[in-house]
Design a protein around this nucleic acid. Structure first.
Lengths: 198, 198
DNA sequence: TGTTTTACAATGCGGTCGCATCGTAACGGT
DNA sequence: ACCGTTACGATGCGACCGCATTGTAAAACA
């Protein structure tokens, strides 16, 4: 068969160009042409690897999910002796936009959220990564409960939602410049303090 | 002078058409033509009242702020004897998208958020309504503290952020169909339970 | 009544969009 | 060497966008 090209690598290349564009310029309204230019290839090439724009966006979303997961687990493992609390803190802080990288990641999340609102298929894809993250959070809370660090009255699943809510919402506030990363981290710590008061 | 028309009423008419469209079709990508059609007037007419699209969006944003404030205060006053807790609950539930109306309101908020991310001027306008809402929340928490219903250790300002975060994030989850309004309300109640445990 | 200002409809312009099509260059298998 | 497939660049189509312009009807003032 013909010219052998690593499809996966090409797709990643495109996805990362998309991510860079999304971070830099804005988020909605990035066009295929822009993505192609940013990736240093022709539009036809992009089309070759992704039949439609949606397909490209969906792939980039999965790529992002993977990267984020890797980043978080790396962060968690890097934190000396991991306790449920330190793990949760690391996750939440990692989610917040604190630098261009994490800001880009957060922005991509927002971009997909927007699409997801109008497009149920995208909402499904977008929400796929959520349950396991929430389950992971809930599990940490449960472990802390068993260790007596979190009151038994707390509901792990709901606490997981609240934790996510804080990171999610504070992240948006940071993006809009209504809050600084430091303030957001302080809020996270505040809440963890209150939660871990068993 | 000539044909006297109530400008404010016309603008409201347009803003509400925009809101309806945003609710129904999606949120980003509503065009001036669509808005005009929805409002039952010509595009030239819309242009007459708003020189640019941004101007229209900005006006509609303020309109929304006003409506939401009115809606919330009405809701609070309607709740028999208002306690800080019932007030907070009413506010949070009111923010959540529970029916087409509140869903539209929430969607508009999302639409503006999106614009706000890329457009600092919009971010400013969008964030203008926030501090007073947060201050109001914080004030309720403080009052509850003085009444001994909320632990003195709680920080009213941060709690206000957390409360907002819950409504904000849960609202998004509802929009995407990842959560039902009932579940979101349960989360709100759960958190209020934990907060009001003085 | 005539003039002036406002309200609005119609239309067009330049631009961009996603997507389809087509031609061709590069390579692997036979 | 040839053939079939793949990679990808070039180009164009139809639709839509925001915005500007133009023309006209109507109403308040003189």
């Amino acid at each position: 068969m013909p010219k052998q090209v690593d499809h996966e690598q090409r797709r990643v290349q495109i996805a990362e160009a998309l991510q860079r564009l999304t971070t830099r310029a804005g988020l909605e309204g990035v066009s295929l042409r822009q993505v192609a230019a940013e990736a240093g290839m022709s539009m036809g090439s992009v089309q070759h690897y992704f039949k439609t724009k949606d397909e490209m966006l969906r792939y980039a979303l999965e790529h992002r999910h993977k990267l984020r997961s890797e980043r978080i687990t790396a962060k968690v493992l890097a934190e000396g002796p991991p306790t449920p609390r330190s793990i949760l803190r690391a996750c939440l802080v990692e989610i917040l936009p604190r630098d261009p990288d994490s800001e880009g990641d957060f922005l991509i999340g927002v971009a997909y959220f927007i699409r997801a609102v109008a497009d149920p298929a995208m909402a499904k894809a977008f929400g796929e990564g959520m349950p396991e993250l929430l389950a992971f959070f809930a599990d940490q809370v449960r472990q802390a409960q068993e260790a007596g660090d979190v009151p038994a009255s707390a509901d792990p699943e709901t606490e997981a939602s609240v934790l996510w809510a804080i990171a999610d919402s504070q992240g948006s506030e940071i993006l809009m410049g209504h809050r600084t990363p430091a303030e957001a981290v302080a809020t996270v710590d505040y809440y963890l303090d209150r939660l871990f008061s068993g």
